[in-house]
Structures are given as structure tokens and as C-alpha cells.
Design a protein around this nucleic acid. Structure first.
Lengths: 159, 159
DNA sequence: ATGGCTGCAAAGTGTTTGCAGCGAT
DNA sequence: ATCGCTGCAAACACTTTGCAGCCAT
């Protein structure tokens, strides 16, 4: 597998290489495979799901390595860890500039990502009001699809 | 311990009694003790912390019972369960009208609760834009206390 | 060849559950 | 006297860690 097979994510691979170099760590077969799959998903995944997908493609990567790599990428600031419902965490690419939030349907679990500068401005104001310097935030909106048909369709696919 | 020792929370005790009755469940010594302590905190707690506090007062309630009671109260809609970022969940009284959000210091873990109607209005607008009916939301702001001294003080108390 | 990396399994978390006896109704 | 409730410990689900050998540098 070529090192940079994921189009549009050169910055990600570069960032990873830099981080590994800086920390005296090594690039490995497994890390490449994991990152490649992670990027090809380009949405949120949990460790288990990623593990399944990677190994479904014929590789044999241990779950522990998935976790270790996801933690490494989080440390490197390249991905972000979120916990939606409870129990498992999901990870997603940390797009450097545009932080996006989530709109989640409680029925079909479909997730839409959005961004709103007005809300972000208000958040800054709130943090300031309480004597804090804002670092990051998490905003999840939970609702129900108005398009019941599409919603039901997605619901059926759920395990 | 009298049944209704927590001032201002008559509605909570009543709601609990109603729920127990409706579901054919029983009021017990332990539940009373747990609820009493929970209400006297009137902030967010995790199961372990509540367990410690209850037993520090001379009671001998099992951790499993704490969990069972917290789940029961959640089912009853009297409290809400939230998961910030690490494993553990925290619980807080579900005030029927005013939903509040959280401002969390990443250093000392101190949590401030706030409420902002402007942001909530924007959230409604966003949900509508994406064809969804908003049910609820979660907004957590993560930052750093500007008052370093107070922050460090709280940090020391962390286990 | 060094020292980080991997898979495995074991250990850790936070939370839930099965069981036998206790206690509220 | 029911039948739910409790404490305990074992079971769980997700995640981390110790170890012996592997592999990138």
C-alpha cells in the first residue's frame, strides 16, 4: 500500500510523519493501514468498527493496535475523540480550521455535521463572562427527522 | 430520616412516589437515603462519589444499589445522565423547565452551569434548516480558568 | 543492533446482573 | 405471604497494559 493513497489528505499524512519524527516513533505497516482506512471512511468510527473494517480487507491487525493508533493520532492532534451516547468513543478527523457540530436523529441515528459561526461567537462570550478562556466545545443537537420515510429506511439498517 | 427532608424538592419526592406507585415498585430505606443525599448535593455527581458520600454518613449502601437507584430515577425522568468525556457518567436533577449547559475547565475539571436563550434559538433554526425537529441538545464548552490560582487549588483536590 | 511496535491475553475501568436472603406492602 | 429490593460477587463492555518476540530505523 503506497504511503499516500488517500487523496486530499496529504496534510494528514505529513502531520503524522512530522509527529512520529518529533517523538522518535516509527512508521509501520499497521499504522499505515489503519490510517488509510480511517481516512477512507471520513466520518466518525469507533475502534471496534474500524478494527472490523480493516481486517475485513484481509489484514490482521490487533484491536489493541487500533486503540494505540487512535490514541496516538489523538495525541498528535490529527483526530478527535468524542463520546455520543455512552460507553464507546468515536473518532473523527480533526479538520484544522472548521470545527463542526452534530445534529443527530434519535430515531435513525443519522448524523449531520454543521457549523455555525453565530453560535461560536456566543460561546466565546459566555466563556468570557464566566472568566474562562475557551479552548474547544461540543455541541450535539438531538432531534427527529421530519422526513419520516427516509428516517424509517435508515432505521431498518441499524443492527 | 423523614421522608421529605429536602426543602424545595417536594416535587421530586412526589414524582418519585408517583413513579413507584405507577410501576408497582417500593419505597425503601436505601432509596430514601440515596435520593436525600443526591438532592442535598444539587449538582452533578457520579455514582462512585455519591456512594462514598452516602456511606461516609454511616450508611451501608451497596454501589450496585446506587446504580440501580440512579437508573430508576433516570427512567422516572427525575434526573438526567450525562457523559462528559472520560468513562464515567454524571447525574443531575432534571429541572423540568430550564435546560442548562456546561462550561468545563480542562485543568481543574470544575464545571459551571449556564443557560443561553440566544444559542437555543439558533439551535432551533439549525435543526429546521436540516429538516429536523429538535428534541434536546448538549452543549459543553471546554476551556481554562483565567483565575489560575483558584484553578490550581481545585486541581490539587483531584485524586 | 537498538528500541519502538505488535498481538495476545490479562488487567483495569465503569456499569450491570444473578442469586439467596431481607424487607415493604 | 407475596414479590420487590439489597448486598455481594461475578459478569459485562470498552479500553489499557505487560510481555516476548518482531521489525523499522
Amino acid at each position: 500500500m503506497p504511503k499516500n493513497e488517500t487523496p486530499g489528505f496529504a496534510w494528514f499524512w505529513e502531520g503524522l510523519d512530522q509527529y512520529l519524527e518529533r517523538m522518535g516513533l516509527k512508521q509501520t505497516q499497521q499504522r499505515r493501514v489503519i490510517v488509510h482506512h480511517f481516512l477512507s471512511i471520513d466520518s466518525h468510527v469507533d475502534a471496534d468498527e474500524l478494527h472490523r473494517q480493516v481486517n475485513a480487507e484481509g489484514h490482521d491487525v490487533g484491536l489493541a493496535t487500533i486503540y494505540r493508533t487512535l490514541n496516538l493520532l489523538t495525541e498528535a492532534g490529527l483526530i478527535e475523540q468524542k463520546s455520543f451516547q455512552d460507553g464507546r468513543s468515536v473518532f473523527e478527523v480533526a479538520h484544522p480550521d472548521s470545527h463542526h457540530d452534530h445534529l443527530i436523529c434519535v430515531e435513525c441515528r443519522n448524523v449531520v455535521e454543521f457549523e455555525d459561526h453565530e453560535i461560536e461567537a456566543l460561546q466565546e462570550a459566555i466563556a468570557e463572562k464566566y472568566g474562562m478562556e475557551l479552548k474547544t466545545h461540543r455541541l450535539d443537537l438531538f432531534g427527529r427527522c421530519l422526513d419520516k420515510e427516509a428516517c424509517d429506511g435508515r432505521k431498518k439498517i441499524l443492527t
